[in-house]
Design a protein around this nucleic acid. Sequence first.
DNA 1: GTCTTACATATGTCTTTTACACTTAGAGGT
DNA 2: ACCTCTAAGTGTAAAAGACATATGTAAGAC
Lengths: 132, 132
Amino acid sequence: MRRGYARGARCRSPVRPGHWEVRARVERFVEPALLLLLRERPMHGYELIERIPEVAGEDVRVDVGNLYRILRALEEEGIVSSEWSADLPGPAKRTYELTEAGSRLLDRWAEALREAQRVVAGFLRRYEQGGR
Amino acid sequence: MRRGYARGARCRSPVRPGHWEVRARVERFVEPALLLLLRERPMHGYELIERIPEVAGEDVRVDVGNLYRILRALEEEGIVSSEWSADLPGPAKRTYELTEAGSRLLDRWAEALREAQRVVAGFLRRYEQGGR
DNA sequence: GTCTTACATATGTCTTTTACACTTAGAGGT
DNA sequence: ACCTCTAAGTGTAAAAGACATATGTAAGAC
């Protein structure tokens, strides 16, 4: 093999050529955000959607469809439990609650996020040393 | 629609049932890591692979294949430039260098990462308020 | 009364990002 | 000749995220 590469360039959504979208988000951050909100008190999915920006940043646009899928995956793993709340007025709501396992998972997320903070802080220190 | 959901549960790779892998990594973090290393001095791909853990965390396992793809995508967008270094001993090496546009992109990454730090810090404060 | 809007929960599908597996090739050692 | 290390790449699948649309309740507008 030698010289010159082939087709199949990775697409990185340059808005305009030479202008990449830079975001710097934590992978799967909605997940710990859900756990944190649910630790404070049980709520239903729609309320979680409205409150997620509080904990995950004001600019995040949570995908509603994926959020419900995540909630169900969490329930299958015993991280949250849910039931239909027939009592509440309005359309049928499924109210979610954090389990003990969920609380422990949140703890692990918090630890992982602290580690991520250390890594990013190290990056930024090294960035600033280099100067402009 | 009412009651009970369907097939198609999202897969979240639970290592053991009830034990999710928690990682908390920044999306596409290798990209700014490459830019930072290349700002310090030009180097070839293989050297970048060895040095990435320095700036992106010791545990990150960079995928070698993807790294070369990213480098080419960066070059197509004028973020880095490269050429074969016939002079150096050993197998053919392509040496990468950061362009002016690349330096500006790194600046934008740094700003985005600072913002991410703020968001995560806010999350952790709220987490600690709740106690255990 | 039916029309529109807001609430609430979902599914389908496509793209982007990441992970895993493999190939090619030069240079040096044994 | 054969093996290992360095160096650069391709192929492909899985995971994560984005975008579009469907379904049903309830309240208020006209």
